[in-house]
Design a protein around this nucleic acid. Structure first.
Length: 421
RNA sequence: GGCAGGUUGCCCGAGUGGCCAAAGGGAGCAGACUGUAAAUCUGCCGGCUCAGCCUACGUUGGUUCGAACCCAACACCUGCCA
């Protein structure tokens, strides 16, 4: 790993004729070779797994969440601990998300409401099935009701950036509003204007914090490109964010977030990355399905984070080269073979499906640990393999081979094995 | 030996004349999960030739138009008194 230093991105090999590339992100806590998958540890822990195990399975960095850590234990405590990495015993690079996603997940976009016409949701606080909306957006910021104790809190771009500086991650994100595909075009436009305005405020606050805390390692700030499924909005967002300069400071990288339909994910990432200069990293927020990696990487995405590998693992779903399946299914009761014969993870080296099946049935927490280790390894390795394939010039072969096999057992999903456009 | 109570689908358990194939759990089975309010959630869960029919609430018999529910006998089980 590199010596502690500032933030730097160095592009490497290119995917001929496309936007995909390899690269190296240098942070004060080490380097990240891209494309890379960044596992999520929302509350300063990858649920059920030791940080040492995360390092062993090849995680290059971890991503935590500002909203959750602000509520508990409090950003000041993480700061006093010496920052996120020191607090959680993770010596490598760290990311924090801004809390922008919680504007969606705790707001109108949550769960069942997604299935409704958002415009039809009343202006009161009660949404589907008596659930209370926990976040309200206005032009200045967002008011949250804590899901932990019901207390009221307010996030503005300044607050989020300040919190993230206290948390001390190497890479932070601008506070944005995450919308859904169901929002109207008009809402997407006004929301995007708000996100863009917030971006400028984030950059200004980031500049203040960086100078005020010059004794601390440098923290990078990534903008978040929104704009939903609209080409003009996404391109404009990317262009404007890239042009944005406040007090001589610019964004260190870009996040791509918000409403992404699987079908047009590659297209959208492509629009954004076409607008962005090559010398800054691009992080695609919240994506981790195998076909999505190939698509997004081909279109210029460098890093990814997603809760899916760990959440799904805790619910007994595991990845294999032949697709994802649930270990709790009855046919695994007597299968004394690993989750995936070709996997090099700790779990596959030592445990059988029958044992994992037993652990889940017996509600033993080791089940969560072992399956999370496997899933995180599987996904980290897949993206590592894609990186290697870009260097080798075998990207398309890997895509066809991997996805062909991955979706072979699910005829209805076979189309995912085809390269789009 | 006396008094009292109980026996419900794989398990626990509600129901005490018709709206009961029978609430609710659990187990079992299947599925979902993409910037984590998620070790969560959803569906199925007696059988069949499945808009109907059959078999079922300890056993047998009875009352009733109709019984898991009322009566009788029997068989187990559980408390308190000996």
């Amino acid at each position: 790993m590199t010596e502690p230093a500032g933030f730097e991105f160095t592009p490497g090999s290119r995917l001929p004729g496309r936007l995909g590339r390899t690269g190296v992100i240098r942070t004060p806590h080490g380097s990240i070779h891209t494309p890379a998958f960044i596992p999520v540890g929302t509350k300063a822990t990858v649920k059920a797994v030791l940080p040492e195990a995360m390092a062993d399975l090849g995680a290059q960095a971890l991503l935590a969440n500002a909203y959750h850590l602000y509520l508990q234990p409090g950003a000041d405590i993480v700061d006093a601990a010496g920052g996120l990495g020191a607090f959680m015993n993770w010596p490598g690079p760290t990311f924090t998300d801004s809390g922008g996603f919680q504007v969606l997940s705790l707001g109108v976009g949550f769960k069942k409401v997604l299935a409704m016409d958002v415009a039809g949701v009343g202006d009161d606080d009660v949404i589907a099935e008596g659930k209370t909306r926990l976040a309200h957006v206005d032009d200045d910021g967002v008011t949250f009701t804590s899901h932990l104790d019901g207390s009221r809190h307010r996030f503005t771009p300044e607050v989020s950036v300040r919190i993230q500086h206290q948390l001390g991650a190497d890479i932070t994100f601008a506070f944005d509003e995450c919308t859904t595909l169901l929002n109207t075009r008009a809402y997407q436009e006004s929301s995007l204007d708000r996100t863009q305005a917030w971006a400028a405020r984030c950059l200004a606050e980031h500049d203040r914090q960086t100078r005020a805390r010059s004794h601390r390692p440098y923290q990078a700030l990534f903008a978040v490109v929104q704009g939903a499924q609209h080409e003009d909005l996404r391109r404009r967002a990317a262009r404007d964010l890239q042009a944005l300069e406040v007090d001589g400071r610019r964004f260190d990288g870009y996040g791509i977030g918000g409403a992404l339909e699987k079908e047009n994910l590659g297209t959208i990432v492509g629009w954004v990355c076409e607008e962005l200069a090559e010398d800054k990293p691009r992080h695609l927020l919240g994506i981790s399905e195998p076909d999505d990696f190939f698509t997004a990487i081909a279109n210029g995405a460098d890093t990814f984070d997603c809760v899916s590998p760990s959440r799904v693992a805790r619910n007994a779903a595991v990845y294999s080269r032949d697709g994802r399946y649930n270990v709790t299914t009855a046919r695994n009761r007597r299968r004394f073979t690993p989750i995936d014969e070709g996997c090099d993870c700790y779990t596959c080296a030592h445990y059988t499906r029958a044992y994992l099946h037993h652990l889940f049935k017996a509600s033993e927490m080791l089940a969560c640990t072992l399956c999370t280790i496997h899933n995180e390894r599987f996904i980290v390795r897949l993206v590592d393999d894609i990186r290697a394939s870009i260097v080798d010039g075998t990207f398309d072969d890997l895509r066809a081979e991997f996805l062909g096999r991955y979706y072979a057992s699910r005829p209805l999903l076979a189309s995912r094995a085809q390269a789009p456009e």
